[in-house]
Design a protein around this nucleic acid. Structure first.
Lengths: 214, 214
DNA sequence: AGTAAAATGGGGAATTTTACCCTTTCCAGG
DNA sequence: CCTGGAAAGGGTAAAATTCCCCATTTTACT
């Protein structure tokens, strides 16, 4: 069985080197090199002289992140087989990476067996897509369409932010120079738009969508 | 040289198992077991029968996070030597972990050599503190003593998390198998402890203090 | 065993939130 | 000018939250 080479690009040194130990234990793989970010990777690639068979690419890195790196690869080394690795499973990110040509996407909480399968799949079949990913993609289709159509007006945003405080609606009405009844109207409109059933839902939505800081 | 046992508590399975491979390569350590969160850890601990020499404890985990787990350890197994592991180096978090009795704190981007030294230090000297930590500690000296003495009990935390959903108190009572009146008692106790005047205040507190993810 | 402190639950009431039905006012485009 | 739709406001009632009393049972510790 031929030995394949793998490059690891991840700023978490402990993780990268642990991963190396794990991969070594698989037997027929060896680490070509690893790099702490995209820039380092590009340099190491030149030094290394030939292409590694697989590149494991973290998304969140300082200096040059996974998405930028993926773009560089697409431009300069499109034949490189890259698997994206991340804890962050926001669909946005996955989509971006796949669009830039990643051959696979893995979350760091997967089982090592899945990890091994992903590597061999990419080498043998050229790609690996986990169920999570397809699910995430499907999820994102309707969620995005829902989310996108949600447009909050200026005054609604103002209300939303105040709803994320300990003030009562009556107090909020005072602050916004509106009748409590009008506030109630805003509340209902938002409940409807955001598909929530309580003020707690408003707060959670506001935080998720970064209307307020915590 | 005696072989020491290590337990790994981290929801990132790939990382945990990679770490196992790395630790094995050190020679004189072996993995007792690993767990995906605090609850799993507590169960595994009972199953395992004796204490591992070291516990590597991630902070951000689902179900029961590192801080809650550390609190449990302090309460029930204070003799356990725990090293906190996290990418998140907010001083708040570090302080909390150390106050709960962690013997060391490591960021995941450290060099494996440092990691090894931390483990041996904790076993041999009983503790390991990196420069980062001492800095964080110094920083925090003036900043603290406000929400410091706040101690939430297990059941209160459970309630707090549920209060951060769109469920009504009656529904929460059902989930926790308690009377709505008891839930009301927890609510009042928390309002008092956390100095808030509405359920929104609970949610904000829970998020600030990482009892829930958003 | 004795006691204090938690944990659990209850009554009752004021306030707030939520829901669903409406009317009035205002303003821009035909 | 008039008109349709958005913004603002109203009435009412049920449900949920919040607050202050209190009693019983369990648990923990001396």
């Amino acid at each position: 069985m031929k030995t394949h080479t793998i490059a690891i690009v991840d700023d978490h040194r402990l993780f990268a080197q642990s991963l190396e130990a794990l991969i070594s234990s698989f037997g027929n793989y060896e680490i070509a090199f690893y790099a702490g970010n995209g820039k380092e990777f590009i340099n190491s690639l030149k030094e290394y002289g030939k292409n590694p068979d697989i590149v494991l690419l973290d998304i969140n890195m300082p200096v040059m992140n996974g998405i930028e790196t993926m773009a560089w690869i697409k431009e300069n080394k499109p034949e490189l087989k890259t698997i994206a690795l991340s804890m962050d499973d926001s669909e946005e990110t996955i989509i971006k990476m796949l669009r830039e040509g990643a051959k696979g996407y893995l979350l760091k909480d997967i089982h090592p067996d899945v990890f091994k399968k992903a590597i061999t799949d990419v080498i043998e079949k050229g790609f690996y897509y986990s169920d999570n990913i397809t699910n995430a993609l499907l999820d994102s289709i309707d969620k995005k369409e829902k989310d996108d159509s949600i447009k909050l007006k200026e005054r609604e945003v103002e209300f939303l932010k105040l709803a994320c405080t300990e003030k009562t609606y009556k107090e909020i009405a005072g602050i916004m120079f509106l009748s409590p009844k009008t506030i109630d109207g805003y509340r209902e409109a938002l409940f409807d738009k955001l598909d929530v059933r309580s003020r707690i839902g408003l707060v959670l939505y506001a935080i998720k969508n970064k209307f307020i800081e915590v």
